[in-house]
Simulated assay, not measured.
Amino acid sequence: MQPRDVARVRLDNALALFEEFVRATVKHPDAATLRGLERRFAERLQIHPSYWSQIKSRSRQIGERLARQFEQLSHKPNGWMDVPHGASGAAVPAPSAPSLAPAADDPALPRNDDERFIVGLVLTYFRRHPERARTRLLELLGEVLVPPPAAEPPAPGAKPPTPAGKDDGLSLWKQSQAGIAPLKRKR
C-alpha cells in the first residue's frame, strides 16, 4: 500500500470513528451540537480540537503513533486505522494492482513518519506556491544537486593536498568555511 493510500485510509477511518461517536452521543445532531461534539471527540482522542480540525481539512496527516492512539482510545484492534472499512465497520479488501504498486523497499519513498512529514510539508508548499517553491528549493538543495567543480591542477610551488583522513587543522578549517556565507552585521 502506498503512503498516500495509508494517509487516505487513516483519514477515512478517523472520520468513521467521529461518525460512530456522533451516533452514540446524539440522536439528531445540528451544526452547533456537532461543533461541541468535535471538541469532545478530540478530547476523547487526547488531541487538541484544532489538531482534529487540521486532520479533517487534510492539512495534517495521521501518523503511525497517532493512528495507534486513536485505535487504543476508541477500543479498536491494533492496525484497524490502516485497513479500509465499509459502512458496517468490517474490513474491505483494498483493490490490488501489483504491477502499479511500488516496491516496499523503494529508496525514493518515505520510510517513517518524519520523512512523510517532510515530504508532505514540501508538497504542500509546492502546491500552494509552485514557482516560489521551485526556486527556493533549488537554492536550498543546490549544493546537493549540483556536482562540485572539478579540481584544478595545483600551482607550481603549492603545497600538495593532504591524503584523505589526514587533514591538518588549517585545511579542515578552510574546507568548512568554503560553503558558509558571512553573517550580516547588526544595524
Rank of each mutant, 00 (worst) to 15 (best):
E19W: 10
A32N: 08
E139K: 08
A97T: 08
T33E: 07
A91H: 08
T124K: 11
R44H: 04
R111F: 12
P153W: 15
P29D: 03
R40W: 03
T25M: 15
Q54I: 09
L73H: 09
L73I: 10
K76T: 08
D12R: 10
Q46V: 11
P148Y: 07
H85L: 04
L73Q: 10
S59D: 12
A90G: 09
L141V: 13
F126K: 10
E64N: 15
G63I: 01
V92I: 13
V146R: 09
F21S: 06
R65V: 14
I47T: 10
G89C: 03
F117M: 10
R127T: 04
D30S: 09
F41L: 09
V22K: 02
R127L: 04
V22D: 00
D30C: 00
L17N: 01
A16L: 05
M81K: 00
K56M: 04
V83W: 03
G63R: 06
G79R: 01
R60L: 01
R111A: 15
R35H: 11
K27Y: 02
A155R: 12
L123R: 12
D105V: 03
S57I: 07
E71W: 14
E131Y: 08
E152G: 09
P77F: 02
P153E: 15
A150L: 15
N78V: 14
P110W: 03
S99R: 12
K27D: 13
G36I: 00
V119Q: 00
S57Y: 07
V26N: 10
R134T: 11
V122K: 00
R58S: 10
P153G: 10
R127G: 00
P93Y: 01
L123K: 15
P84Q: 08
A31D: 15
A101T: 12
G120Q: 02
L140M: 09
A155L: 08
H75F: 11
E131S: 11
Y125M: 13
G36E: 03
G89P: 02
